[in-house]
């Protein structure tokens, strides 16, 4: 924004305004950097604490750097099968992401471009399901999984998440922003609906596809309530959040902090890396969803 470059009606700005602008900028930086520290420091302390031996943590849980670095916490996590949990989390998240991108874009395309009977009503119904709070589904999904024999299975972890109403909504909105002329040309050449979707439209929606990929992956990777009701006895099927909650145990239990924080870091790290590489898309995606919603 270039407000200040054109002082109103050619008057030079009074000194007090200039001073106030300076002060305001300094104050702003103080607040912003202070908060950035408040957001980063807890993670930093958690990382370094995960490398401390237990007695050191008990003696002083505030000190940043360990006196003695150790992999004890991580070793304990490996002993608990954390590699298996990591694999489960990744496998489930990849399946769910693929499902979302394909199914939501197919449905979104049809809802935005293919005139078929019942389209409007269908779209409204899908919007309506976005209003259903997740917690309401907790027990009824358990009943369903029980009836379908999906308790303690990968199918139970994956299939319900393969598509979301939000994903369909996002894709539909995006398809509508693409000029229809592009498709008409292909249409004249006798391409089928699927060919148009696959060859013409989908490549144009790369930003939306990336945003949806990120939302789906993140949603699945961090999901706790879903796996909590699907997995009842088979610990080999734990995802990372489920494994972490199991590790925490009951209230009042003596906690092995280095292992718990090591587990938390192993859960955080993959998402953090994806975030650092694709930040722009995270921000664009959430902004886009915000502006459209």
């Amino acid at each position: 924004m270039t407000i200040s470059h054109a002082p109103p009606r050619g008057r030079s700005r009074p000194l007090s305004t200039v001073l106030w602008d300076r002060t305001r900028l300094v104050l702003s930086y103080a607040i912003l950097f202070g908060l950035a520290l408040a957001f980063f420091y807890p993670f930093t302390l958690a990382v370094t604490t995960s490398f401390k031996p237990l007695p050191e943590i008990a003696a002083n849980p505030v000190k940043l750097l360990p006196d003695q670095w150790t992999l004890e916490g991580y070793r304990r996590m490996v002993g608990l099968n954390v590699d298996r949990w990591l694999f489960n989390s990744a496998f489930v998240a990849v399946c769910i992401t693929l499902g979302n991108v394909i199914l939501a874009s197919l449905a979104g395309y049809a809802l935005s471009r293919v005139p078929f009977p019942g389209r409007e009503a269908l779209f409204l119904a899908i919007l309506g399901t976005m209003m259903i709070p997740g917690i309401v589904l907790l027990i009824p999904r358990f009943i369903l999984f029980k009836l379908l024999g999906m308790i303690d299975t990968y199918q139970g972890l994956i299939v319900p998440g393969l598509v979301t109403s939000f994903g369909i909504f996002l894709m539909k909105q995006f398809f509508e922003s693409i000029p229809v002329e592009l498709e008409e040309a292909a249409f004249m050449d006798g391409a089928s609906r699927f060919q148009i979707y696959w060859n013409v439209v989908l490549p144009l929606t790369r930003p939306a596809v990336i945003a949806l990929t990120i939302f789906s992956f993140q949603g699945s990777w961090n999901d706790f309530m879903g796996p909590l009701i699907v997995i009842s006895t088979n610990q080999d099927l734990y995802t990372l959040p489920l494994g972490l909650a199991f590790l925490r145990g009951g209230i009042g239990q003596n906690l092995q902090w280095n292992a718990i924080l090591a587990g938390s870091m192993l859960t955080t790290l993959p998402m953090a890396l994806i975030f650092l590489f694709f930040q722009r898309y995270f921000i664009e995606g959430i902004s886009y969803a915000g502006l459209k919603g």
Binding site: L32, L35, A36, F39, F40, P42, F43, A46, T49, P61, Q218, W221, N222, F224, L240, P241, L244, A245, R248, L255, W257, I260, L261, G263, S264, M265, T267, T268, M271, A272, F275, Q279, F282, I283, I286
Partner: peptide
Amino acid sequence: FRTAYYFPSITSSIAISLIFLF
């Protein structure tokens, strides 16, 4: 700043809860 403030939003609620428990 945008990155710093957004970071907690991408982290698992369970991992964050354990960190805050600490």
